[in-house]
Nucleic acid binder design. Sequence first.
DNA 1: GGCCTGTTTGCAACCGGTTGCATATGGTCG
DNA 2: CGACCATATGCAACCGGTTGCAAACAGGCC
Lengths: 352, 352
Amino acid sequence: MNIRSDRDQGRKVTSAQVAERAGVSKWTVSRAFTPGASISENARQRVMEAAEALGYRPNLLARSLTTRRTQLIGVVVDQFANPHTQAMLNAATLALQQRGQLSILLNISPPVRSGELLDIAERFQVDGLLFLGTVLSEDIVRFATERQHVPLVQLFRTTEVDGVQIVAIQEHAAGAEIARLLLGEGHRRLGYLAGPDSGRSRLPRLDGYRQTLEDHGLALAATLTATDYRHALGYQAMHDYLQRTPAQQRLDALFCENDILAIGALDALHQAGLDGQLAIVGFDDIELAASPRYRLTSYQPNLDAVVDSAITHLLDRRIPGDPTLLPGRLVVRDSHRAAQSLLPQARHDKPR
Amino acid sequence: MNIRSDRDQGRKVTSAQVAERAGVSKWTVSRAFTPGASISENARQRVMEAAEALGYRPNLLARSLTTRRTQLIGVVVDQFANPHTQAMLNAATLALQQRGQLSILLNISPPVRSGELLDIAERFQVDGLLFLGTVLSEDIVRFATERQHVPLVQLFRTTEVDGVQIVAIQEHAAGAEIARLLLGEGHRRLGYLAGPDSGRSRLPRLDGYRQTLEDHGLALAATLTATDYRHALGYQAMHDYLQRTPAQQRLDALFCENDILAIGALDALHQAGLDGQLAIVGFDDIELAASPRYRLTSYQPNLDAVVDSAITHLLDRRIPGDPTLLPGRLVVRDSHRAAQSLLPQARHDKPR
DNA sequence: GGCCTGTTTGCAACCGGTTGCATATGGTCG
DNA sequence: CGACCATATGCAACCGGTTGCAAACAGGCC
């Protein structure tokens, strides 16, 4: 058990100690641990052996002090209840780790003063800040416009803010594609379920959706809202809608701003005994969307591509420019179908 | 727009620059920013003004170098697909932030070599490591037993590892309570749906469950397994079970290792047209459990209390001791009820 | 062997703070 | 008014690395 004969005497092992043991100077030790440095193979070997024997690990903080690079990226998150956040977090941290960066998780959920937190992150000398689909508050916008020396990238939101690089989905096209899908299914009264952030940014997605309807001579039939991206609020939005709207005036189909709201809405329909009576489409394609219980038609962003592009922007310290908009892909399941088409019909067999 | 007249000339602002402007030495600046330090009110004021004017923020890395405290806690996570992980992450980061600490998120999902990643975290001089319900791999155990100078705390798992402080739920009692609930409901053939980690640790929860059954002269009727804590695997486990087990031999009730598996199982029952035929109980009480569609009876850990205790252990650098086991609370909804009790019955009105 | 060139290595200085110690400053009291 | 004490501030040294520069060294070639 006592492997710690040499190492671990109170303090941590420093490069000087390794140097002494290897019979070289501490500068040579530093070079041994610096990839492209000029050092003889012989010396490197001896240093590595000594380091191994003593259990030496370079202090990355000390290194950062001179290199001015910390390899730390602040990852800013606010909607923990949304499974898509989780997927983003997973993808982002994995991608960062692969590039030798670590993520500092900054949680700006409601009680937290986001401006203060970003300030603290800056003191930790983060190399950049990555906003994972967060709602951009006043605080954040102010921070962004003031401190333009730390690169800022925002994922999956198209609110343009000075100094923030946007990497997102081609929202307009996605909205249009979903409208066409629903129209093709025969729906005519189409609505939209908006989340809390829709007010600030006139979502291109909604524009694309609405515009396509208008191209077909239709107007957006109703807009519901949820005050947070959570299951319960999707449920409630649909529940209230059903309460206040007589059956014959109801929508044919509802496009929801994301999957967790869509699933809430589906659950409300189920609860009201109206399964399949109102077509639903979501967005994000979270894992639960594929569940046989929901078979939610959704739009799948290419998460890896988005994250990859974002990280490239951060690490190359590119100057923020036009939004990078990547394509996604529609995942067609069952929830978007018209009520009658739940019965087997020939309708889908179009002439080719 | 150009607020950056003074600040921001290439390099970042240092304490020396603030000192010059305030007409004091850089040491005085340092003291101005150190809470309990000996400094006159007058000097502090001047320093603060100068700092404000220049946009100075102390470099916390440099500070950490001398103080040997980084205020960084490594938060280790592996099961991103489980909503409970998200809840833990949210609670943990918020609690840490409130205590002035920041979280470095370490993602040890399958492809990642966890030993290496922990090693890197150590080089960043994290003040401690918090394992959020992760499955303890060989790598991690080795790391834990070798490096006992960085405090390690494990949440929600009771696998005892040398040098790791455990903070979890009173699993044995919880298992027993759930068994009693199901027995009280009239169920007699009770099963357990285990997750991937059950093999390693003979879960006290399962022990408590089984033991209570035995106290009533019953044996555990079946054990199903899911190879990962994900909805699809809970679904599959139940699906396969239904396939291979004739109706008359099936379980009355199934206790699932967590909610996401339980919900998968419920969905599989629904898909098979067996809604309500098999009682289900989960664990963790995730948000979706409360959905009117599931009404999943579950066990709610006191997340805040667990996280709070864990962080206290970390920050006080306490020597790891006996596991800290906190009580949780059974959340009784509908999914645990017997099939016939879905019809209104007098059964619940026990004589008082 | 002497000279030239290219590679290694040691050194001083620095990154941006903190801390113990010594000195200066101001206020109180006899 | 001087002694005394508490409080403030400056200074040197240090935390654990990196980097430009110059000296040392080795090998190749004539």
